[in-house]
């Protein structure tokens, strides 16, 4: 093994993820409880997927804003549509945030790997679709994650390529269940987050969150924990029969 490692590099021979690496706490109790690591799993690639408008982008940016208060973070904007001002609106620190706007998917993956190796601890990759990138780039990204104990989260999209899916540590399904209204205005989004697939724990757990937008009340913007989902709610979620609800604030 050592000879192979010396000859072809550390990437070719490596052990599985370190189970003791722990997690990166988000500070949102229900969300942290979804992971056995009590936080976003370090050294692994995670995916928060969902339909367009499900809230995965907002959730990702709100998480990025929380992390940017204490860690260097990066957002890889594959669609070049994200407004980094949202990070500031969610109470984040833009001074700790690097924004990458790649021209090609390969550039985005390579940038994420380089920035994680350089010291970025939380890397958010946002795209509405995830085209195939081959096997090497996801493998190298995961190797960089394991080496740096960083966290990488893919946000958005209904599907991911098979070669990426094989590298995912946890898949979270995001679903919008309603809007939060204030004085007749849409002031936030209600969403449910389910563990669709996990390499670290049995899937099936879920939580409900509310993300308050920065407009019209910028001071309250951020994630609000609405608690874990009960078994009956979870069964509704899995059959996808729960109608969209409008919840007054």
């Amino acid at each position: 093994m050592a000879a192979l490692g010396r000859r072809y590099g550390r990437v070719v021979v490596r052990a599985g993820g370190n189970p003791n690496q722990g997690g990166l706490r988000t500070g949102i109790g229900s969300l942290d409880a979804l992971f056995t690591t009590a936080g976003l799993p370090r050294g692994r690639l995670s995916w928060i997927g969902g339909e367009a408008g499900a809230g995965s982008f907002d959730l990702g940016l709100a998480l990025l804003a929380r992390m940017s208060l204490s860690l260097p973070v990066a957002v890889i904007d594959f669609d070049r549509k994200v407004d980094p001002g949202d990070v500031e609106d969610y109470g984040g620190e833009l001074g700790n945030c690097w924004v990458v706007r790649p021209r090609t998917t390969q550039q985005g993956w390579a940038s994420a790997r380089s920035l994680l190796q350089a010291g970025v601890e939380f890397c958010l990759m946002l795209a509405t679709q995830w085209p195939s990138v081959g096997r090497a780039l996801p493998a190298l990204l995961v190797a960089a994650l394991e080496e740096s104990s960083g966290v990488a989260v893919m946000g958005g999209g209904l599907t991911v390529p098979l070669e990426v899916r094989g590298r995912l540590g946890i898949e979270l399904s995001c679903r919008r269940v309603g809007w939060s209204l204030a004085h007749g205005d849409v002031a936030g989004i209600l969403l449910q987050l389910l563990v669709a697939r996990s390499r670290m724990s049995p899937p099936g757990m879920g939580c409900e969150l509310r993300i308050d937008f920065s407009r019209p009340y910028p001071k309250t913007a951020g994630i609000v924990d609405l608690g874990m989902l009960s078994s009956s709610e979870l069964s509704d979620c899995t059959t996808l029969t729960t109608p969209l609800a409008v919840v007054a604030r």
Binding site: W98, V99, V100, P102, R103, Q107, S111
Partner: peptide
């Protein structure tokens, strides 16, 4: 990859 890849943003 070119100069317009990584950005720092401030308000």
């Amino acid at each position: 990859f070119g100069p317009e890849l990584v950005w720092r943003v401030e308000v």
